[in-house]
Every structure is written in C-alpha cells, then in structure tokens.
C-alpha cells in the first residue's frame, strides 16, 4: 500500500519536476554540444584545415582557387566599399549625431552581432542595428541586401577584424530562436528539395559543375562579401536569398525572422573563430 502511494506521488510530481528542469536547462551546454559535433564533422572531413582557416570559405579547402583568390587580395575588390562605408559611417545625421552615438568603440563592434535581445525576444543582426540607429535619429532606413547598408557593415567588419565570435545562447527564448535556425539549416526545401546542410556539409568540397562547394563552418564570419558574380558588395542574407532561389525555393524576407534565426545558428556554430570580413568571393 505504501509503495503504491509513493509511486502515485511520483506521478503527481512528475509534470512539476519536468517543468522545473525545463526552466533551469543549461542552454549553453546544449549549444556547445552541437558546436562540438558540427565542428568535428568539418575537422574530420578536412583534417589539414585549422579552425580559423575555415573563415576563408572554399579557399581554405581548394588550393587552386586559393591561389587565384590570394592574387586578387593584392587589390581586394571590397576595399572601395570599406572606404565608402567609412565615409557613410562618419557622416552626421541631420540631427548632428552620427553612428558612433549608437555604436561604441568607433563602430568596431561586428563581434557583438547577431545577439538575442531578451526584451524584444528576437535576434538582432548588425544590419538591423544600423537601420535602427538611423530610425532613432530620424533618418529613413536603408534598403537591406546591398548598397549603403552593406558598405557600412563592411567598414564595421573591417575595423573589427580579429575579434572572436562569441554568440551567447543563455535563455529559453534564445534557444528557441537557435533551434529554429538549426531546423532551417537542416531542412530540405524548394523544388530541388535541398537543404543548407546537404550541400555545405555532406557535399562540401565536392564539385557542382566546376564550382567547389564551401564548408558551412565559418560562413557568417567573412561577410559582407564582394562577390564577383554580383560585381558589388552584399550581405549574408542576400546570399541566403540567392541560395534559396537557386534551389527553387521562395526567397524569404531579408532580415525576416527565418534568415535572422539562420544567421544566429550559423554564427553560433562559428563561436571560437575570428571575424575576418569583408571578403571577396567568386
């Protein structure tokens, strides 16, 4: 009899204990386990590549392409965007303030983004923060994807080079955004039924026609990029939209929830690496 009442008691308490354990979950431990597995996949696949070198994308794994890329780096095509970005960054708003009133360290804060804003319960990216700075100062927002916003972002990335990636996931809200980004990364989509992970994990280093597929590890670290195909500088989320279009999927809103969560997940996976953007890519 006593035994039964004990087990009944346990059953009654079970939901409460489950709820309690949910609230005290160690989110960074869960995320760190993912990071470890994700990283191990690439370090086993490309044992000769150092962790930080994955920031160079496909040029870390393809010697032939790397040589051409290094030659291009003598006069990097993104340098004009950095200069123009600096001028835009230093320009005063009509109220006399500048971006430095929003961003400390003279704007060398690339490494503080993306982050999860607990009050607003959402991921905030650098490009989003740039536009929010403008709105706060009575300026119209810039169009996302390319142009001035990519130039300002490039300048801020440039003066933040070498800063470590340390995105934190320390609340349930942040973990949920992270999980949504993770699901996006692994889920097949579009007419061609492909996922980010399909090409950029399982087939990274293989050739699609003559193009070697870049490893996903470190993708966000080198953006914005001057892409020869674009002939100009563009943001990471512009690339997401292009990738989605390529696989016959509907490109989603730039700086919409889906892409921000994906950027959040991808940047978390790059924790421990160092920002080295902007960069040039084919």
């Amino acid at each position: 009899m006593k035994k039964i009442s004990q087990s009944r008691m346990f059953l009654l308490l079970l939901p409460i204990t489950m709820l309690w354990s949910c609230q005290t979950k160690d989110y960074s431990a869960l995320v760190n386990k993912d990071i470890e597995e994700f990283r191990a996949y690439f370090t086993e696949r490309f044992p000769e590549v150092e962790l930080d070198d994955f920031a160079d994308g496909v040029y870390a794994i393809d010697d032939n392409a790397r040589e051409q890329w290094l030659a291009m780096e003598d006069f990097p095509p993104y340098s004009i965007a950095v200069e123009e970005g600096q001028a835009l960054f230093e320009n005063s708003f009509s109220n006399g303030k500048t971006y430095t009133d929003c961003f400390p360290e003279g704007g060398a804060v690339r490494h503080n983004y993306p982050y999860f804003d607990e009050q607003r319960n959402m991921v905030v990216t650098l490009e989003m923060a740039i536009n929010e700075c403008r709105s706060a100062n009575g300026e119209p927002p810039l169009e996302y994807k390319k142009g001035d916003i990519a130039k300002i972002s490039s300048y801020m990335a440039y003066i933040s080079r070498g800063k470590p990636v340390e995105v934190k996931v320390s609340s349930q809200g942040a973990y949920e955004a992270y999980l949504k980004g993770k699901e996006f990364f692994y889920a097949k989509r579009g007419q061609l039924n492909m996922s980010c992970a399909g090409c950029h994990m399982r087939y990274s280093g293989r050739r699609l026609r003559s193009e070697v597929i870049s490893p996903a590890l470190g993708h966000p670290v080198h953006f914005p990029v001057f892409r020869l195909k674009w002939g100009e500088i563009g943001t990471l989320q512009r690339r997401y939209a292009g990738c989605n279009r390529n696989i016959g999927a509907k490109p989603l809103a730039i700086q919409g929830e889906e892409y921000r969560n994906l950027e959040f997940f991808q940047t978390v996976m790059s924790n421990g690496m160092h920002f080295n953007g902007p960069a040039s890519r084919k």
């Binding site: 087939y203 293989r206 050739r207 699609l208 026609r209 003559s210 193009e211």
Partner: peptide
C-alpha cells in the same frame, strides 16, 4: 559522356 566540366556529387 559528351559533357564538359561535370560535377562530382
């Protein structure tokens, strides 16, 4: 056969 620069997926 007959195709140039094929992929290798």
């Amino acid at each position: 056969p007959g195709g140039e620069q094929p992929g290798n997926f």
